[in-house]
Each structure stands twice: as C-alpha cells, then as structure tokens.
Nucleic acid binder design. Sequence first.
DNA 1: TATGTTATTGTTACCAGTAACATTTTGAAT
DNA 2: ATTCAAAATGTTACTGGTAACAATAACATA
Lengths: 336, 336
Amino acid sequence: MVTIYDIAKRANVSSMTVSRVINNSGTVKEETRKKVEQIIKELNYIPNSAARSLNIKETKILSLIITDITNPFFTKVARGAEDKAKQMGYRLLLSNSDESLEKESEYINMILSSGVDGVLIAPSGDQSKKNLRTLIKHRIPFVLIDREVDGIQSDVVMGDNFDGTRKLIEHIIQQGHRKIALINGPSNISTARAREKAFIETLQLSGIQPEENLMYNISFKQNNAEKIVEKLVSLKKAERPTAIFAANNFIAVDTVKALRDLGKSVPEDMAIVCFDDPEPIPGFNPFLTVAAQPDYNFGYLGVQLLIERIEKKGPQGFQRIVLPPEIHISKSSIKG
Amino acid sequence: MVTIYDIAKRANVSSMTVSRVINNSGTVKEETRKKVEQIIKELNYIPNSAARSLNIKETKILSLIITDITNPFFTKVARGAEDKAKQMGYRLLLSNSDESLEKESEYINMILSSGVDGVLIAPSGDQSKKNLRTLIKHRIPFVLIDREVDGIQSDVVMGDNFDGTRKLIEHIIQQGHRKIALINGPSNISTARAREKAFIETLQLSGIQPEENLMYNISFKQNNAEKIVEKLVSLKKAERPTAIFAANNFIAVDTVKALRDLGKSVPEDMAIVCFDDPEPIPGFNPFLTVAAQPDYNFGYLGVQLLIERIEKKGPQGFQRIVLPPEIHISKSSIKG
DNA sequence: TATGTTATTGTTACCAGTAACATTTTGAAT
DNA sequence: ATTCAAAATGTTACTGGTAACAATAACATA
C-alpha cells in the first residue's frame, strides 16, 4: 500500500508537506505542490481513511435507519438522503429495523462501534427512547425522520399527519360515508397517534360519533390486516363501515387484498383511503386515494439538518420541520 | 473517549490483555476476563473501529452500487444485500449511479478512499470496465449483479434474460400478436443485448421476421419512451405493432403512460409485456405481464459471494450464478 | 527440588495519518 | 549588508488499537 511517506520520500519533502497538499491546508509552494501531486498520481496513492479518522475523529459516514427499504415511502427517503449526503461529501450506511426495537438496538450498537458521524433515523416507536439516549450519551448527533419520540429533544423532519388525515377523512365524508373504520399502526408510534387524533376530531366536527369497534391498531409492516378486515366485513349491515382509513400504504394494500379475497370490491363495497403512496412511480396505474408525503425531502432535509448539526453550522436549538402531504384522489374512494 | 488504556489501567492489566478480552483471542484467565469485561461495561467502552481498521486492514463495510434505489427491482436487491450483510457482520454503503458512468466513477473514487472491504455493483454498462479495472488494480474484491461486463472476469449474480424474454414473447405470440415492437435499454448493457437476442430468435422460431423499425434503444431510466411510442402508434395500420416488449419496468411504465396520453388503451389497442415488476408489493393491483426476477436473491447471493471472496473462503475460481425469472401474466397482455 | 511445558500477561514497535510547535527560507525594507 | 516578518517546510509526539515476540507464573513430573 502506498503511503504518505512513500510520496514524501520520492518528492524529497516531509510527510507533513504531503499531508498539506492532500488536505489543501497550511502553505505549500506552488512548485512543491505540483511535484507532490504529480507523484501522487504516478503512484496511484489513495489516502487511508482509517488513519485519517483516527486522528481527526470524523468518518464522513452517516447511518440511515429506516424500517424497510422495500417500502416505497422509505425508498424515496433513502434516495433523498443519499443525494444530499453525496452532495455534501458524506456516505450513507443503510439499516432496516423492520419496526423492531431489537433490530434497531443491534444497529445502534453497530453504529457506535463503526464510528459514524451522525444518524438519520425513523425510530421504531416510543421505546426507541432508550436507543436515542444511547446516541446522546455517546455524543452522536441524530435527526429523527417521519416520527417523533416522546421525551427526546432533537431535530425532526416529519409530515403533517393531522392535516393529511383531516383532508382524507373530509373527502370520505363528502363521498357520503358515515361509518368509517380506522386500521391504524401501533399507538406507540407518533404518526399513528396523530392520525388517530385527527381521525376522531374530523369525524366529530362533522357530527359523526367515532366508534371504538371501528378502530384498530396493527403493525405498520406488510402483514395481515386480514383478520380485522374479516371482522369489519362480517358486521351487521347497520354497523358495518362503508369506508376504511388505512394508516399507511402497507396496511392499505393488505386491506385491499383482504377485501378482494372476501369477494368485496373497492370502492363499490368498501372505499379505501390511506397515508403514503404504495406506488413507486406516481401516476402509473393509480388506484388508491392517498395522502402522499414529500418523502424524498424527508431524507434530503433530514441529512441537511444532520450535517448542519455535525458541522455545528446552523442554529443552536433544535429544528422541527413539518411538511404537508398532498392528497391524490383516485379510484379506491370514488364510486362509478 | 474511553480507550483500551483506560480499561487497562483500571483493571491493572496491560492493554494487550484488554485487547484479547475484546477479540476473544489469545489466552486470558477467566478471572481477569471477568474483571475486564466488568470495567468495559462500567465505562461504556466502545472499540474505536478506525484504530482497529488501521491495524488489521478491514472495515467490515461493503459498498452497494446500484442505479437507483427508487426502482423496486433494486430496492429488493438492496434489501437482500443488507439482510445478508448484517447476518455476516458487515455494513452496507449505498450508492445510486443513475446509469451514469460519471457518477459511478465518482463513487468508485469515494470507495477507494473510504476503504471498504468489497463492492457489490450493478455496472452502468460496458464502459464500467474502466471502473472495475480500477477496483482490480487496488485489489478490492467485487461482485457484479444483474449485468455482466465484457472483458471483466468476476463473480456474477444475474437473471436468465434469454429465458425470461423467450417466455414473454412466446406468450405474446400465443395471444395472436405478429407485429411486436421492442423498446430496449442501451445496447452497451449486457441485459439489453441478451433480451434483444432472445427477442429476435424467439420471433424467428415462430416464423416471424423481426423488423428493424420496430426495435428501439433508450435508457433504462425513468424517462420518456413517449417519442418512440408516438412513432409506433402513428405507423400505418399494416405496419403498426399490436404489442410492445418493454425491456424493463421503467420503460414499461413510461410506455403505458404514453399510450394512455395518446388515448390508446392497454391491452385493447396495444399489449405490453416487460422485464422486472414495477410493483413493490407483489399481487396488489397487478396490471403488467412481467418476467419477475428473484431480485432479493440477487442482493443476498451477491453479498454472499462477495464475502466469500473477501474472506477467501469458497472456490478459487469465479462463480456465475444465473437465476431464472418467473412470468406473471396479467391484464396488460390479455384481452377481455 | 529442579525442570520442562503450558498458560497468562506484558513490552515494543508499528499501522498511516495529523496537530502543534520548531526551524529554515525567502524577499522586501532599512 | 542587515533585519525581520511571512512563507515554506520539518520534527516530534500522538491518535487507539494489534502483531510479534518476551517474560513471567503455574503446575506436573522426574
């Protein structure tokens, strides 16, 4: 391996001069700089980042912890994060927590020992407080995306869950629905709580009494909303919902699949609206009425805040960026 | 920052003993091990990976270079890669080349200086040879996924492009189509070449003469197949194709969008089949007839080969894993 | 008790850079 | 020619670990 010393020897200078050339620091005579650069090229010298990191205590690596890179929502978050990171000269380590605190904890441990400069994380839930505390203890800057955590002060980039939900529910009500079910994520996740709150309040504002037996919590993951859908469908006509608000894209997809398996069609037998678009490519074969979030910007702005914090630029206090969703109305909620 | 020396001092041992405890190497008396472990916990000691890497010359970090994490195909490749990497104690750095040689080169440079142990790459095309040569020169192991590169010897995990194409085209012919167009990716990408070859040969086997003016090359990226679709649609009835084979998911989506914009419906006016599913969630709202590849396994097996090579386990020679696609027949190619 | 072997622990040098300070060179001003 | 500040370069010590070898301890055997 070619080192700074090999370069130094050939150029008849000290290693420090080479270091100065590489880092564009200190003062170096134009002539020596040329010579050193020339030799660096000749020998195909590549600086050793481990040695550099050991000295200056920075790796230019960020960690991105999301629940699943397979979810189109997080896919775009990741893309936004990566684009910004690259632009700023950072690299991104990818982690999938699968909504699991245990996996998240494992990644946090890996993060501690791999010495990243900062962490962009969509926490698995309020229990993540423990993991975030660990980051704080080890002085690793982090930015939350999509989800807040009770009792944790930090920068956040998130969506306006209340607004998106309100608009979706208003739309559904406008379509004539009165019995509306909610299949929500776990209530230890801030987005689920906000969506539930908005769901209830919007119904009430329209004079509809929210009903306990039409509100359920399951995982945000791709899994089975089946049982709940079955339960809803098997209710007596008078109690049966005519519309379902699925709290995220995966739940919505599961719900639609389950309804079809039960021989029900969407939106004729049941209207569906949801948060987050399950489609990776907007405008192709649209089906679901969704509150589409500016996912790319979650990642992009998240990394921006993170780097500002790492490099101690930007404001001292924590920033909280709330981005509004866009409502895309489509077949799943419009009859005919 | 707590170091190995802080631990050593408190435990009244040398730093080497601490190092042995941490790495489970050499011999350490049970009693001392206990004591050291205890103190490590007390002081929240985290090994410094930069220092370690500097010594042993490994980072346990792999680089994944794909063209776009937003493409559901690569999304699943990434997920498979990450899962296997985690399982083997490695981390994954994410890079999006956007099918661009320049971006790819930038990433290759970042890779060289960030000292990853290996690279899993879907090359942007045959010109990537230059970048791969750079990796070889610097002795960085790599594995190709999805695409081969002329003149580069390496491990590869790829799909059976010939077989998938043949089945798609046979299906289309069986549906009664005789005039079939191909909107392909760039011919400097191995998958595009293989798909074209299979396209032509399958037609010929069915006694259909492939026509130059029904075969086009564009980018595999999300962009505009519009112009080509317009051209195809505006052909005289006798020369107009009744079906289009789109060489990947993004091209297919663009094609469908363009057709709809032109007031044509799929499959009534034009049947469509393509390689790679554009849907992130199989079975939801299926529309396109596709040759779906085992994308997750591209990543999973790719990382496996890569780690085998890095750790010098497994066979000496290069491995070439070819995975068969699955044909999913759906609305876009079936009338009625 | 002496001796050889194995288990356990320590010492030293080094990995490839950089910070901080020291020294030398340079060129203009006196 | 002398002086001095600024520019250019060098020296040394250190970053936090690990490899290789050295030294000591422990124990059974002769």
